[in-house]
Design a protein around this nucleic acid. Structure first.
Lengths: 197, 197
DNA sequence: ATCAAAGATTGCACGTCATGCAAAAATGCA
DNA sequence: TGCATTTTTGCATGACGTGCAATCTTTGAT
């Protein structure tokens, strides 16, 4: 078995990409609210039902939502108190590792950022897009802290982390896409610290 | 003109309350997903169309969403750099003032918290419920910072503030509703600080 | 090349959410 | 009482999203 993917896999990826791209184009042209799933499907040449085989919702397609594929080692290390033993430092490292994940190509990421800028409600309204990712991170933090269900810290922490990620990415994009989102984590932390010091 | 409200006003408030309470009951009985707007209306004796005159969505009713009625003085003072001149301190004061607002009765607040606990997706999925409140706070922060549109700090700050408010409220509820959510802001700040120090 | 199993797409029916509009009912006020 | 203003309501409409069963495609083995 080669590293090659079968026709089946390749087609799936291509279709998925086509759906995301079509969504981006249409949203750019007409705005999120005015784009119907039907229109997206028409452009791609696919049935509406198929669209929903790929994405849970229109929003998921708009942000090109991909399951968070965090490395197992990284996750376990963090959960068990590593790598440094310092909670704040390790959590920050975790954030940087999350930002390393090749979730989207640069072009697509840029498209998403533009869309979010034009449609601020997208992220504010339906954060469910990232729900599973959020949940994973939340669980890691919970394990790390040895917290039980009633402790709401993991939830707040995970959400804050998510915002930090978004913010860093946003800054990176504002800077013209120079370097890597990871490079902007520092500034982001600094600004958040100004709020709660 | 007395302080008395006319029949019209009283009926509106009563209906609104009835809708919120009915929603809470039904959600408790059947879970958020299984409650239809139609069922809520049936219980209250009101048409579906009327429901949507009162609430933007089912979720809004579930959390008893009320427009954020922040005092004008408070808002202006904050936006113009007051009351102390220190950004972090004043923002914290703002948070405490937001928590002062009598958005919901204690019982209803408790009901909402229980619902959110049972249906974590509620807040994650549709944060739009708080969108207008969030937006107001965001604008205040933007003014305060003299930031322009491209600066994303107000957005992150407002959202963080929102989380802090939720967290403080949650802690207050866990403590059996003793005192006031405001009293838990301190602990909340401390815990968040642990994340980003 | 053939064929069966596994996987993906599709159409259809269905239920729900949400909005616009205009008629009808309720309320406030002179 | 009669008239103006709000509110409620029914109806039509459109979009979202899911379950199901039929159909088509890919795969891998013979």
């Amino acid at each position: 078995m080669q590293n090659e993917l079968g026709l089946r896999e390749r087609k799936k990826i291509a279709r998925r990409d086509a759906l995301i791209d079509a969504t981006h184009e249409l949203v750019r042209e007409q705005g999120l609210e005015n784009v119907t799933v039907e229109a997206i499907c028409e452009r791609v040449g696919v049935s509406v039902r198929t669209f929903f085989n790929y994405f849970e919702s229109k929003l998921h397609a708009a942000v090109g939502a991909t399951p968070l594929a965090l490395d197992d080692d990284v996750a376990v290390t963090y959960a068990q108190g590593g790598p440094s033993g310092d909670f704040a430092a390790d959590t920050r490292t975790l954030l940087e590792q999350i930002l390393e994940l090749p979730a989207l190509s640069k072009e697509r990421m840029a498209a998403v950022i533009e869309i979010v800028k034009a449609e601020p409600t997208l992220l504010t309204r339906h954060m469910s897009i990232f729900e599973s990712a959020l949940h994973q991170v939340q669980d890691l933090i919970r394990q790390r802290l040895g917290a039980d269900e009633s402790d709401s810290r993991p939830e707040l922490y995970a959400m804050t982390l998510f915002h930090l990620a978004r913010w860093a990415t946003s800054r990176w994009h504002e800077a013209g896409g120079a370097g890597h989102p990871r490079d902007y984590v520092d500034a982001t932390y600094g600004e958040l610290r100004e709020l709660i010091t």
